[in-house]
Simulated scan of single mutants.
Amino acid sequence: LQKACLLACGIIPREGHTLGEILERLGSGFVMHSEVTNVPKGSGLGTSSILSAACVKAVFEFMGIAYTEEDLYAHVLAMEQIMSTGGGWQDQVGGITSGLKYITSMPGLQQHLQVAHIELSPQTKKELDERFVLIYTGQRRLARNLLRDVVGRYVGNEPDSLFALEEIQKTAVLMRFELERGNVDGFAKLLDYHWELSKKIDAGSSNTLIEQIFSSIEELVDGKLVCGAGGGGFLQVILKKGVTRQMVEERLKEVFMDSL
């Protein structure tokens, strides 16, 4: 990861030049260290892209290189291609830019991300904080494998996949609308619809364990979706009004004992 960062940022050349020549140009050497703590690999939370973004930002600031948020997005995307991790083009935005975001980009190989911040009323933010819960499945799945399947279906013009991808774009717009007008219930319903669409794009985004978890808490939640690639990692749910996190935790312990 550190080497990919130095390559993407232009600190070391792709080929040629000895270590001595590179150090002479830099004026000295330096130590790079990166670590993700308390977040499991394959969590679906975009940690690889966020860690890459943190490395790029650190190198830019250490070297005194002026940059914009768009520069960070582009350099992280280049890093992911160098490492062949297959991360999404928008994952890094989650960690670099604070708050709730609506992210768009036009078609084409060169992606120019447009990031719009979603403004929530204090009441909506409080309700969302109270009703939003993450559940860790204990399973891992690499995004790279998912993306190969998704792109394969898209290139193959599979009707279900093309329909679902088109619908997900529309659903994202509606989600933003419902949150901005303070309708968390409406947002939860759209989250549920998104989950059904995700399974049309890639059946592997769900599995027996995920379906069992969702089924066991069905009457406690209004909306559900996997994070990231799915097939494991974290699940996100919107609780019904009046339901607490403790009630969900107790139900899961009752059904799965201590396996979650």
Score class of each variant (00 low, 15 high):
2 Q>G: 07
3 K>W: 01
7 L>E: 01
13 P>M: 10
17 H>Y: 10
17 H>N: 13
20 G>I: 14
21 E>K: 09
23 L>W: 06
25 R>T: 15
28 S>M: 10
30 F>Q: 10
33 H>Q: 11
33 H>I: 14
33 H>F: 09
34 S>G: 10
39 V>M: 14
43 S>G: 06
47 T>F: 06
50 I>H: 00
56 V>H: 00
58 A>E: 09
58 A>P: 02
60 F>L: 14
63 M>S: 12
70 E>D: 14
71 D>Y: 02
71 D>H: 07
73 Y>P: 01
73 Y>S: 00
76 V>L: 00
83 M>F: 01
84 S>W: 03
86 G>N: 03
91 D>C: 08
91 D>H: 04
93 V>T: 11
99 G>E: 10
101 K>M: 06
102 Y>L: 15
103 I>H: 02
105 S>Y: 13
116 A>P: 06
117 H>Q: 13
120 L>C: 06
121 S>D: 13
121 S>N: 03
122 P>S: 07
127 E>W: 02
127 E>L: 11
128 L>W: 08
129 D>E: 13
133 V>C: 15
134 L>R: 05
137 T>Q: 01
142 L>W: 05
148 R>G: 13
152 G>Q: 10
152 G>A: 10
155 V>I: 15
158 E>M: 12
162 L>F: 02
163 F>V: 04
168 I>A: 03
171 T>S: 12
174 L>I: 08
175 M>H: 04
179 L>Y: 03
183 N>W: 02
183 N>T: 01
189 K>F: 06
192 D>H: 13
193 Y>V: 12
193 Y>D: 06
196 E>I: 06
199 K>A: 09
199 K>N: 08
199 K>C: 13
199 K>M: 13
208 T>F: 08
208 T>K: 14
212 Q>W: 05
214 F>C: 07
215 S>K: 09
217 I>T: 04
219 E>S: 12
220 L>P: 00
220 L>Y: 10
223 G>P: 02
224 K>T: 15
224 K>C: 04
230 G>S: 08
231 G>S: 04
235 L>C: 10
245 R>P: 02
250 E>W: 01
251 R>K: 13
251 R>P: 01
253 K>W: 03
255 V>D: 05
259 S>N: 07
